[in-house]
Amino acid sequence: MDIFLQIIISGVSLGAMYAVGTIALSLLWGTMGMMNLAHGSFIAIGGYMAYWCMTVMGASWIFVLPLALAAGMLGGYLLYHLVVRWMFERKEFSVDIIIATVAVAALVENGLLNVAGPEAKRQPFSISGGLKLGDVVLPYQTILTVAVAIILMVIVLYIVTRTKMGIVIRAVSQQQVASQLMGVNVMSAFAQAMMLAGGVAAISGVLVTGATQLFPGVGFDTTIKALVICIIAGLGNLRGAIFMAFVLGLFEVAVQYIFGQQYGFPAMLSLVIVLLILRPHGLFGKETVERV
């Protein structure tokens, strides 16, 4: 029974990390149709901001999240105006942007490597200790991550569905020319979407690196896993992605417990491939009709 509980707790911790990572990815895919492989750089930037703020500057933890948010938003703004903007009109945007953002990710990783050094650091924005449930311990960090994931999801959903900014972003993503004719500033709408996603990704980076360690390439694995989760949930479906993050986190931990540490991710991926063969649009994705 204890082992069972332990698996559930570890699975929820892992799932919380995935969930927090999928929000920004889902947002960008749902609004701009863009797969952001540079998501890992935002995670790393958020983590390094926290490290810089608390360890180097010695400031209070209160400043960490606003700082990460600001850095992520700045990163999103720059990414849009330096890279994304110039390829948006192309027919093959969805693939071109993958190549371009892989390059951006490598660039940021290399930059962090040169500025901050290759060694793994401990990121100070984390809570030690945990809640005792019988013989197993529920770490406070997990509770914090789950809470922040849910809060971020609610905020992002609120912004996208209820505020004027979100309506503009969705309108542009659905009918770019029509919304331009209605007087919407298309470029600014996309820049806003990218800033929102960048800020959310950087905050998730603070949480993810708090539970593991901090090194320049920290975000890459998380990005791949989060993207796979987004695909299985149906890209752009925020609630489905969060749900699947927890399911797959539990599955991965269970496999790790039963078969050994290294088979977690391969088993999860095989499951995803099988599910996608059965349902190519994801579990919660809508089937779209293609017109010629």
Binding site: M35, S94, V95, I98, I224, L227, V228, I231, L235, I273, L276, P280
Partner: peptide, 8 residues
């Protein structure tokens, strides 16, 4: 299809 294949 398309970008899904790249990620997979």
């Amino acid at each position: 299809r398309g970008p899904y294949i790249a990620i997979m």
